[in-house]
Design a protein around this nucleic acid. Sequence first.
DNA 1: TAAATATTATTAGTGTAGCAACTATTTTTA
DNA 2: TAAAAATAGTTGCTACACTAATAATATTTA
Lengths: 145, 145
Amino acid sequence: MNQNEKYNTYSFLLERTARSVKQFAQRKFNELGFEVTVDQWQVLKVLYDHNDLNQREIAELTYKDHPTLTRIIDLLCKKELVERKMHPSDRRSFIIHLTEEGKAKVEFMKPQVAEIRTHAWHNLSDADFEEFKRILNTIYSNLSL
Amino acid sequence: MNQNEKYNTYSFLLERTARSVKQFAQRKFNELGFEVTVDQWQVLKVLYDHNDLNQREIAELTYKDHPTLTRIIDLLCKKELVERKMHPSDRRSFIIHLTEEGKAKVEFMKPQVAEIRTHAWHNLSDADFEEFKRILNTIYSNLSL
DNA sequence: TAAATATTATTAGTGTAGCAACTATTTTTA
DNA sequence: TAAAAATAGTTGCTACACTAATAATATTTA
């Protein structure tokens, strides 16, 4: 493979792997009857860890954009896992609050999700894990400048 | 970070990075007036390298699913970059053919895309590149079993 | 060879990503 | 303090991913 072609590979592998990780998790979520998507889970988890954030803060923590957040919150509201509450001092923004049902859902899913996530790492070492994180973070910051 | 939380990180970093790589490329595509999406480019490139494939073959090479392929081919047809031709012996399938315009587009874009792809790898070595590919491929195969 | 099965591609429906434009509100600054 | 700028969130549009169902055609097998 010549030098030009070389860098065409990584973006392909990166995307393919990211999709396969997500797809694997979603399939498990469905099998286990979680009734939420992987992205919805990500938002629930952030709310569980921080509780009572506005949408901007959730967007920052999940690296999702605002329109996407609006739609995910809509769906989570419909499922009664979160609710939009008035912000006491800023009438532009909502406080997103995890309901009791939402909290229970996170506690139920949490260990099972952790288990699902380990599958990808068979045959890989802790050193691999650190390398992987370092490289991903470097790529990310190379493109953010 | 405890052992349970540990593996929640990688899927997040992986997806975030994959998205950022794609978004970066798409932004450059737009700035350079390519008038195709990154996914459309991927299909054009595969056709350029193999020419005259049916949609199943393109799906296999790009790891995209059939419905997605149908729609991408529709869009590329509208742009007159490819055309659907009758398969001589199998009336279920089409031969997807890169038009002259499509071929010219690939030749025009190819070196510029290669250039765009290198940005992600500043501050990273060839060894990192190999490590990265190895880890991505291992994860992918762990989840395909 | 007729019936069952498999394959190729499409359509429909849901969810997410990204962009641009917009409303409502808050903050800044002139 | 009035005008300008910034912020929070929404909506609309296009594109892609995934699932399930379907149509048309080919292949297998009984």
